[in-house]
Amino acid sequence: MAGSNNDKTVLVTGGSGFIAVHCILKLLQQGYSVRTTLRSMNRQTEVHGMLKNGGITSFDNLSFIKADLTDDENWNEAVKNCEFVLHVASPTPAIKFTHEDELIKPAKEGVIRVLKASRNAGVKRVVLTSAYGAIGCGHENRKTPYTEKDWTNLQAKIHPYQKSKTMAEKTAWDFMRDEGGSLELATINPVAVMGPVLGEDFSHSQQMIRQMLEGKVVACPKIDSCYVDVRDVADLHLLAMTSPKAKGERFLATTGNALSMFDVAKILTRRLGDDAKKVPTKELPNWKLRLAALKNPSLKMLVALLGQYAQASGEKAKELLNWSPRSNEEAIVATAESLFRLGLIKG
């Protein structure tokens, strides 16, 4: 398939990010010309390094442009002559913030900047990387798997990061309804993303795996989550980019099988042998996590997930786009093995 798409240019926003790099990798492998945004052009070498770790040997079809979601500069130039845009960049969960708007405002304003520039440039379709956090938070007494028809309850007490993802996606759909013109939109809503790490910039979900392997997690919080491999998330972005069936649709990226953190720990122990000797072997009482979060703000988002139903369905993507994700176990083990391979496990 490589070479068949070299007359098509795709913009990927936030090119140094974990999901974005895997999307760029997949696009280059399929012969697309790729332009990607960076907030700092000093990270070009880092992106090249991650792509090399993923098997890319030529960067002839890759270019960089400086652009920031909080600034109008260069967005019109970034989307120029692009057929598609993968808007992957997003503010990441901040440990310390004085007001939730520090997360919400850049997420909303950023998506508007990208959509406006894309519409004005005649881009065919934008694929927005949203999140499970825009679907499955703030619901009480849930007993059936979440689907793309669900939206996070903004009236509930939820973490500002989840609120920012929800409001950013709602802003995108509102823009499309009112001002989208001929532009098309699809969104991808990944659950906790695992899979091969290509460099030191990886998802906050994977930090949990590293902390387990380094012995920094003494016991597993009683939190359930669905998981998905980043390679499958990238595949789904490309399917949503090109398939006529994806126009105007949301897609949950999930294997559909929720695991507890203790289940994850048991997978690591079973599959990694001595490399998993520091992985926790017991669960943490809820009251201990709540107490620890009073002193450590980074734990507050975990506290909000205690006792939450987390089952989510990936059937829509499988049926509509013929998407076929790897298993939870394969994704989790691939994360751990890549962390060791790149020397990112300390101690």
Score class of each variant (00 low, 15 high):
137 C>Q: 12
186 A>I: 04
201 D>G: 12
192 A>R: 01
144 T>R: 13
166 T>V: 03
189 N>R: 06
115 L>V: 13
209 I>N: 04
161 Y>H: 07
112 I>S: 12
173 W>E: 00
154 L>F: 09
193 V>P: 00
188 I>N: 02
165 K>M: 03
210 R>E: 15
165 K>Q: 06
172 A>C: 13
209 I>T: 11
180 G>P: 09
160 P>C: 06
146 Y>T: 05
164 S>E: 02
132 Y>N: 09
204 H>R: 02
161 Y>P: 01
148 E>T: 08
121 A>W: 12
199 G>R: 10
213 L>H: 07
199 G>Y: 01
124 K>Q: 14
209 I>K: 00
164 S>K: 09
176 M>Y: 04
147 T>A: 05
121 A>V: 15
138 G>S: 10
171 T>Y: 03
125 R>E: 08
122 G>W: 07
165 K>A: 03
198 L>W: 00
207 Q>R: 06
159 H>D: 13
206 Q>R: 07
177 R>D: 15
126 V>C: 05
162 Q>T: 10
187 T>I: 08
209 I>S: 03
128 L>H: 14
196 P>K: 02
161 Y>Q: 05
126 V>H: 06
113 R>A: 05
142 R>D: 08
193 V>G: 00
123 V>N: 11
198 L>D: 06
136 G>Q: 05
187 T>V: 10
147 T>V: 04
205 S>K: 01
